[in-house]
């Protein structure tokens, strides 16, 4: 409940404040957001599986974000930034879909 409230609060802060993304972070923020979403859905699934662990969630969240941003950064350095971004988004998207499917099976038995 508290993380959900935090999510809503963060969205509100972002909407009201509306800061510009620093130029350095602009390529990485979208990927980092998707990676974080992947961690969140994974956490919900873990809750339903009964294996949720706060520490694991926090660590996986941060690791997801950092690794995703690092991959994009590396791709930029190698000159394949856009392709690698697409690849990361596809992989994370697939993971999110599978997590959501698992959650759905738990909650709706369908």
């Amino acid at each position: 409940m508290i993380p959900l409230l935090g999510l809503i609060g963060g969205v509100l802060i972002g909407l009201l404040w509306g800061p510009d993304v620093p130029l350095v972070l602009q390529p990485y923020l979208p990927i980092a957001v998707i990676a974080a979403l992947d961690a969140v859905f994974g956490a919900v699934r873990a809750v339903l599986d009964g294996i949720f662990n706060d520490k694991v969630f926090v660590v996986s969240f941060l690791a997801n974000v950092v690794v995703a941003a690092f991959i994009v950064f590396l791709g930029d350095q190698l000159g394949v930034g856009s392709q690698l971004s697409t690849g990361v988004v596809v992989v994370l998207g697939v993971r999110i879909f599978s997590n959501v499917a698992s959650i759905r099976r738990h909650l709706f038995r369908a």
Binding site: G6, L7, G9, G14, L15, G18, D54, F57, V58
Partner: peptide, 28 residues
Amino acid sequence: RPRATRANAFAALLAIALGFAIATQVQQ
């Protein structure tokens, strides 16, 4: 349910950061 643990508070912090990042990125 709210649980007063450090990890839960940290998770909430991360959630705030995530929401903030989403909103900022969308606006950008």
